[in-house]
Amino acid sequence: MPKKTYRQAINEALRQEMERDHRVILMGEDISGGMGAPGEQDAWGGPLGVTKGIMPVFTRDRVLDTPITESAFIGAAAGAAATGLRPVAELMFVDFMGVCFDQIFNQAAKFKYMFGGKAVTPLTIRTMYGAGFRAASQHSQCLYPLFTHIPGLKVALPSNAYEAKGLLATAIRDDDPVMFFEHKAMYDDEAEVPDEAYTIPFGEANVTREGDDVTIIAFGRMVNFANEAADNLEKSGISCTVVDPRTTSPLDRDTILETCEETGRVVVVDEAHPRCNMATDIAAMCAQEIFGALKAPVKMVTGYHCPVPFSPALEDLYVPNAAKIEAAVREVAGKGH
C-alpha cells in the first residue's frame, strides 16, 4: 500500500469527495491562494499547502478563496449546507473560532433541533490545532473539548494519515456539521493510505495496542506518543492497551470503558488544557461507570493550565510526550524504573 503524508491523505480525500459529489465545495482563506492577485494562482493551497492543486482541477467555482472574514464565510458555509451544498470550510487555525463560534455552535449545530428535525446541515469545518509548532498562544490550542460540549456537532481527531483520509470522507458524507481537527505538527507524517476512497465510521474507537496492565486513552496526535510509550514499556514488562477514540463526538464509550475495565489502570492523554477536557471527561466516565474495577486513580497527561507558550524551551515543557506518558503509566502500574 502506498505511503502518504497526512497532508496528502487529506488532499486526496477532498479531491475524491469532490469527484464523487458535485455539491462538495471548498472555501476558506487562501485555500487556493493568490485570488485577485497579479502573480501565481493556487499560490498557497492553504498556509501549509494542504489544499494545493485542487483549484486548478476543480476551478474557482468549487474552490472559493474568501476574504479574511471567518464570521461571514463560516456562517455562509452553514447557510450553504442548509440549502443544498456540502461545503468543506477551512477555519485556518481553530484558535480563530473566537470570531466565528456563533455560526458554528448557535447556528449550524442547532438548526436540526431548533427546526424540529426539518433541517439538514452537511457542513465540514477543517481546522488546524495543536502545539509543537512554536506558533504561540493564539495559534496552538486544541479547543476540541469546547466543540465536543455542543450537541449537534460531531468532532473528529485523526491520529495519522490513514485515519485522516477515511475520517474526512466520513465527515463530508455525514449529514451533520462536523469539526475536523488536523494537527499542524503531523502534516508530514506518513502512513500507508489506500488510493481508493474509503470511510471510517464515527464513534468507533481504534484499539492500536492490546495489553494487560494499563489502558491508555489518547486523542489525535497523542495516540502516536501513546503507542511509542506502550512499545517502550512493553520492553520493561508493562503491557498497555492503547485506544484512539477517533472522534470525541460521538464518543465510543463502550470500547473506552471496556478496555479501562479490563486493566483497571487508566492513563488519559489529551493535549488540551487540563480543565474540562477529554481527559477529565473520561476520568469522570470511569468514576461513574467502572469505579469498582479501578485498581489505581485515573492519571491524566495533558497540557497545562496556561496559554501555550512561544519559547521552544517552554513549549516543549507544555506538550505531553512519550516520556511523560511512560512515567504516568509506571505510576498507575505501581512499577517504578
Binding site: L64, S71, A72, F73, I74, G75, A76, A77, A78, G79, A80, A81, A82, T83, G84, L85, P87, D102, Q103, N106, Q107, F111, M114, F115, K118, A119
Partner: peptide, 27 residues
C-alpha cells in the same frame, strides 16, 4: 423556521442571519 418554504429561521442571535444567507445565496 420552515426550510421547505425557504424560511431559514427567526434567530436568537442578533446578526446571526446575514452570514447564513450568504451561504443560501451561494447555493
Amino acid at each position: 423556521a420552515d426550510m421547505s418554504k425557504g424560511m431559514m429561521g427567526a434567530n436568537g442571535i442578533v446578526g446571526g442571519g446575514p452570514p447564513l444567507i450568504c451561504g443560501a445565496a451561494l447555493s
